[in-house]
Amino acid sequence: MNQASMHGVIRGLYEGILDPGAWQHSLRALTEMAGTAHASMMVWDTVRDQVTVNEIVNPVEELFSTYENDFQAVDPAKAFAPRLVPGAWYIDARDLGPHAMARHPFYCDFFNRFELRSYVACLVERQPHYEVYFSMQRALSQEAFSGEDTRALDWVIPHMRSAIAMRDRTLGLSTLAALSARLLERLAFAVAVYTPDRRMLLANTAGERWARRLDPAGKTGDWHLSRGFADMLQAACNPGRPVAAQAARATDASGAQAQVLVLPLPPTHILASHWQQPAAVVVVHEADAPSILLETVLRDLYALTPAETRLATRLATGEGLPDASRQLRIRHETARTQLKSIFLKTGCGSQAQLTHLLSRLAATLEGN
């Protein structure tokens, strides 16, 4: 086994994050290295006790459909699987033994019918509800697998695990982005998510249109902001002390106006955790556009609970905490506890700062 072949296999696994053909090429190369008849990735749904075979090398449709439909339930490897840790191998000739293999219906009625003698399976990934295995099979004309065979392939398993994790993460991000884009399109206002260097991560159609107005790539635009857009993004994305809320007025030559609100994306938000970098949410409310509810924005952007949202909206009107708790008919101590949670979620450090954030937000959303 030469280094060039090994590097080719590893490269194909990582390229397979986006290109299934590259992953298949790596599996095929592994079968050639190990001298096997077939190879596949197998997913065991441990809740429904159902094994699905996919990404097959040298596929024989009847072989794998017969396994899934009739013989996966009596696969002797299942009895050994709970003892495995990720990276460990099940080797039938070693774990089950040649005598048991000769009598077992899995081999007598299934494997031998398809001229197969032996197989191995490595636990690549174990999750709460499913497990992923890399499996190889050898023909009747070949020797049964041994520990030496699997040790010769141990180097590839960590790369499989990493590539699978990266592929799952990429798929999750793609799904999240597609879902977020569909939801954003339903909003009646422009919204976009930016990095500190003004790179747009996500936006609805209205947000993309405003991106050219807010940041015209060094050119003079038709719209002018009362504050520098780049400075607002930098302040919102400051990892040490992000500015809780900033507002600017946008005007064009014809006198049309819009309110631009820049908010830091909370570090606990799912988008922030996926992108793993500071980001800012930019909301643009045009003067003639329908208003949106402050309560909805507080819930969606800052994950405030209904009770916290009710308190926050009372504070946005300028009420103090004692008056707000009295109007909401809650104890002052309860209101203080809720306020501390609101501080934590919005990044504010005082009631004055929170009131400033909420008043700016309410004014922008109402188009004032």
Rank of each mutant, 00 (worst) to 15 (best):
T296W: 09
L225R: 02
Q234L: 12
A236I: 06
R249C: 07
G228A: 14
Q246M: 11
S254D: 12
D215Y: 11
L265R: 04
L271E: 00
P290V: 14
L263W: 03
S254T: 15
A256D: 13
C237Y: 08
P239K: 10
P264A: 05
R299I: 06
P278M: 01
R212N: 13
E295H: 10
A235E: 11
L233N: 04
A247S: 08
A253D: 14
D252N: 15
S273R: 14
A250L: 07
T251P: 00
R241W: 07
V260N: 01
G221M: 02
V297D: 00
P264K: 00
A247C: 05
T220M: 08
L271Q: 05
G218A: 01
A245K: 05
N238C: 13
L261K: 03
S254G: 08
L263N: 06
P216Q: 03
Q259A: 01
L261I: 15
V243Q: 12
V260E: 00
L271A: 11
P239E: 14
N238G: 03
D288N: 12
V243D: 07
M232G: 11
A247R: 04
A230G: 08
Q277V: 06
A230V: 06
L293W: 08
P290W: 13
A250C: 10
L271S: 02
R213C: 13
E295R: 12
H269P: 02
W223V: 13
R241V: 06
K219Y: 09
F229M: 08
A236K: 06
K219W: 07
G240N: 13
S226Q: 01
L214V: 12
A236W: 05
A256F: 05
R212V: 08
L293D: 15
G228I: 09
Q277L: 11
V282W: 00
V284M: 06
T296S: 11
V283D: 00
A236C: 11
L265A: 08
R213I: 09
F229Y: 15
A253Q: 11
T296R: 12
W223F: 12
G218L: 01
G218F: 03
R249L: 13
A287V: 08
L214R: 09
A272W: 00
Q277W: 01
P242H: 08
G221S: 06
E295N: 14
G240Y: 10
H285Q: 15
V284W: 03
A245P: 08
T268W: 05
V262S: 03
A258P: 05
V262K: 01
V284L: 05
T251E: 15
A235M: 06
D215M: 04
L214Q: 09
L261G: 04
A258H: 02
W275R: 10
L298Q: 07
V281P: 06
A244K: 12
H269D: 15
G255W: 01
W275V: 15
T251H: 12
V262L: 04
P278L: 01
A272V: 03
M232N: 05
Q277M: 13
S291P: 15
S273G: 04
A217V: 11
E286G: 07
P267A: 13
S291G: 08
L293G: 14
M232A: 15
S273Y: 00
Q277C: 11
T268M: 06
C237M: 10
Q246E: 10
R299Y: 10
A250S: 09
E295Q: 15
V243P: 00
H274T: 03
L233H: 05
T251L: 09
A217P: 07
